[in-house]
Design a protein around this nucleic acid. Structure first.
Lengths: 342, 342
DNA sequence: CAATGCTGCTGAAACGTTAGAGCAAACCGA
DNA sequence: TCGGTTTGCTCTAACGTTTCAGCAGCATTG
């Protein structure tokens, strides 16, 4: 078996005693090929183990059948986040269903002034791209969208308002979470640990927090982290030192909330009795901490599904209109001060 | 900018006033092209934004520059596991470094008797493949290896002993973990929640457990789960009901350990005072549970790196010899009964 | 039975690239 | 001045596929 040359259309054609084009058309179920020949060719192709060469097919048809998932950040930073896994689950589900492949492109390496992921599209290795978690000021994203190639953005980019994007209601989610702390638990001194503020998600969650804080917003302490656990820990240290009366912390994602939890626990501060804590994302393990983390559940799998669906539709020429926003929901557990649910 | 036709070698050639082949050779830095022409062509190509068409290049060079990551299980099942993400981090790191792309193939859909991921290689969409987490009895894996195409397996497959693979010392890891419970904490009634026993990882971890249990191995209760949290919960219920004297549970991965923790907590059983708990994998959040989970740390990122490296070497014709095994380490936290580290 | 229309195939061209053979011009030592 | 080498490019073919015009042969029509 080993080392055998791949079987091509020509091989099948020779075996069937017809022309190469006849074989191609027979396999494509072309109406102008006789039923007998068609059947004969098809069984023969299967017997010989014919598989069409994807490079040749792409070259001829100007279509690769592949879409690129573009992750501008460096591998470690983004794959590490569970958010990404969920996105992948949703993406691959739809792509499998519709017979497309997934090319993962993480390399931000710039060459000849063109970032790697722009090259992916220009080289026609992918028919379109899904861009995950780029900074709002990433000029390459803007260029990619402007290039007219099929692109779907995950998250909103106000600077590219007309781009096709799929996001979640981050402002509302953050507001709801903060309001829960204020209205249900009657807390007033609430701090926010935000994500990196060049990401729209961070901006929106901060905006939601501020909206909920109303007139107190200008005094409410905000420290920026970078979505990593360690930064949550650092931010918490900072907050505790400069805000003695602090009653609650709302972190822009769960990992930073874990960091906060660890830091608070390390200092003997009880959660939620002394300080209440709320996170954001709800990927997997927020249930398992003690206390279980109250957080905002983000439907990342569904975001992935929608992004893939819209991109494939776009590629097929079905026009897509602007932004799509999926709702998030507040998931109440114990870290906010609510009683444990059975 | 939108809708512009892609610029090809011919365009650059026309602009430079030389032949297409001259342009091709100039861009490839061929020695037989004059320095002046070379420079001229290169600047011109950059100006025009030339990017070589990957389909044409693949077709001509019989090389796609892409490797496939094959995940026989269905998307949800496998992407969900953090193990997979770590693997991806390691893979993409090496691939980026060496200028290769990553094609993710999850669809196990069988068509014409050839599974989708075998088609990926036969269609030359990928130059080689990394197979992650297939069942030991998956005949397709065997066929893939037998086909002579470059394949690296993640994990060992005793049935295909001569295949190139990268795995971890699961038997030793499980034995060390179990011995810790026995020797350090003096526990005797220890149960194991195994993974699905058609996966070598599960088999090895069970073997390690049995080895550590010595003569008690035959009485030691073992319940098989499927690596999911819920199955850990179910297994724990089962174990508690039929083993009143149970002192410890060793779960074959962390997620099942979480399930065990949840179940024990729900029943008011204290961990580790009443029942000690040890997991396996150590991906991310085991630190955050209460008590923090004692577990076996698996260097999954490094496994990814090694697998990618070996596959690329294999593709370049550098022979690879059999199995490579990376060491795991026991990470002691609190759930086994050890005191919390500061 | 000539004109027309199907049916079922073949042949050629094209997709964009690369590699090797070929060929002129320049250069060299003798 | 001449064989021979070197330099710098062009030409051609090939990778495997798809598509479309073309063309027989046969059936249908008036």
């Amino acid at each position: 078996m080993s080392g055998r040359r791949a079987v091509t259309l020509a091989d099948v054609a020779a075996a069937a005693g017809v022309s190469v084009s006849a074989v191609s058309m027979a396999l494509a179920d072309h109406p102008r090929i006789g039923t007998t020949t068609k059947l004969h060719v098809q069984t023969l192709a299967e017997q010989l183990g014919y598989v069409s060469n994807s490079a040749a097919r792409s070259l001829r048809s100007q279509r690769s059948g592949t879409i690129a998932l573009i992750v501008p950040n460096t591998g470690q930073h983004v794959f590490g986040h569970p958010y990404f896994m969920q996105l992948l689950v949703g993406l691959s589900e739809v792509l499998n269903l519709r017979g497309a492949s997934l090319l993962v492109s993480t390399n931000p390496d710039e060459r000849h002034g063109v970032v790697a992921y722009e090259r992916v599209l220009q080289s026609k290795a992918g028919d379109g791209a899904i861009v995950a978690s780029a900074a709002v000021d990433d000029v390459n994203v803007l260029r990619l969208v402007d290039s007219g190639l099929p692109v779907v953005l995950v998250g909103h980019y106000p600077a590219i308002a007309d781009a096709v994007s799929v996001a979640v209601t981050d402002v509302e989610g953050a507001r709801t979470a903060t309001e829960h702390l204020r209205n249900v638990h009657g807390l007033t001194d609430i701090a926010h640990i935000s994500g990196p503020l060049n990401h729209q998600t961070s901006i929106d969650r901060l905006a939601g927090f501020r909206a909920a804080m109303g007139v107190d917003a200008e005094h409410a302490p905000v420290v920026a982290g970078d979505f990593d656990e360690e930064s949550g820990r650092r931010a918490t240290r900072e907050l505790l030192e400069s805000n003695p009366g602090l009653q609650a912390i709302f972190a822009a994602n769960d990992e930073m909330a874990y960091g906060a939890l660890l830091e608070l626990r390390g200092r003997g501060v009880r959660v939620p009795e002394d300080i209440a804590l709320v996170g954001y994302d709800d990927f997997g393990v927020s249930r398992l901490t003690t206390p279980a983390l109250t957080t905002v559940s983000v439907p990342a799998v569904e975001v992935g599904r929608r992004a893939a669906t819209r991109l494939l539709d776009l590629i097929e020429g079905i026009a897509q209109h602007g932004q799509e926003t999926l709702p998030v929901t507040l998931t109440i557990r114990e870290s906010c001060g609510c009683p444990p649910s059975t």
